[in-house]
């Protein structure tokens, strides 16, 4: 669970202000908005990776943030996969044991000894996701995890996210894909120029948007 109020983060040319925000336990939130709106910054604020200049942030449970670049370390697949658990102080052998089923699930079981840098984009995305999921976080903050993936990989990532949600995790997913936002979300936010301009249950958001900006955004018009 994350609760924020009066958050502010500004630097020249950028101003993010969020009056009141809640990521309830077990929720699945999809966040929409054009590039530069402040989605990644908001995620990092919620993750506690960046400090807000103002406001109150309350977080219960452990949150992880997944970057859109699916960063891999200059190590082999298994060493990358256990990295999240190793950061938490889990012993190497135990971490490897726990990662086995995850890696098998995402089709990487045969490639444990290969350098992660040699993986394809889809494989990297799966690796990055299981690296985070294996640490069993309470909140998942995901920055466009399926960006530039083919449908098969998108399906695999979505299945993993759904399952995490089913098991009680909260998810905040930033995406540019309206279908995905609708497909997965229970609640949807639209962020524009550093402000949340619409915040509604996903079905309501898509069926009957209230704000002028949300209507325009869903209609595919430029709203900058």
């Amino acid at each position: 669970m994350i609760r924020a109020s009066g958050l502010r983060k500004s630097y020249p040319g950028f101003d993010l202000r969020v009056a009141d925000l809640r990521v309830p336990e077990g929720s699945f939130i999809t966040m929409l908005g054009p590039s530069g709106a402040g989605k990644s910054t908001l995620l990092r604020l919620l993750a506690g990776m960046e400090a807000a200049q103002d406001g109150v942030l309350e977080r219960r449970g452990r949150a992880v943030y997944l970057d859109q670049d699916n960063i891999v370390l200059e190590r082999n697949v298994i060493d990358n996969a256990v990295f999240g658990l190793r950061l938490m102080g889990v012993a190497s052998a135990e971490a490897r044991r726990r990662l086995r089923p995850w890696l098998a699930r995402v089709g990487l079981a045969e490639r444990l000894r290969q350098p992660a840098a040699k993986l394809s984009g889809g494989e990297r995305a799966r690796l990055a996701l299981v690296r985070a999921l294996a640490t069993e976080p309470d909140v998942l903050l995901l920055d466009e995890p399926t960006q530039s993936l083919d449908p098969k990989n998108v399906a695999m990532v979505e299945a993993l996210l759904r399952e995490a949600h089913t098991r009680g995790r909260s998810v905040v997913l930033v995406t540019h894909n309206l279908h995905q936002a609708r497909r997965l979300g229970e609640e949807t936010w639209l962020l524009l120029d550093g402000r949340i301009v619409e915040q509604a249950p996903t079905e309501t958001f898509f069926a009957s948007p209230r704000s002028r900006e949300a209507k325009a955004y869903l209609a595919g018009e430029m709203v900058y």
């Binding site: 993750a47 990776m49 992880v64 997944l66 970057d67 999240g84 950061l87």
Partner: peptide, 20 residues
């Protein structure tokens, strides 16, 4: 930049950023 985002994103400390 990448290592910091990864480590901090997974909940690691600044010290773990350095060792990584």
């Amino acid at each position: 930049a990448n290592v910091r985002r990864l480590v901090r994103g997974l909940g690691g400390s600044e010290k773990q950023v350095l060792t990584t």
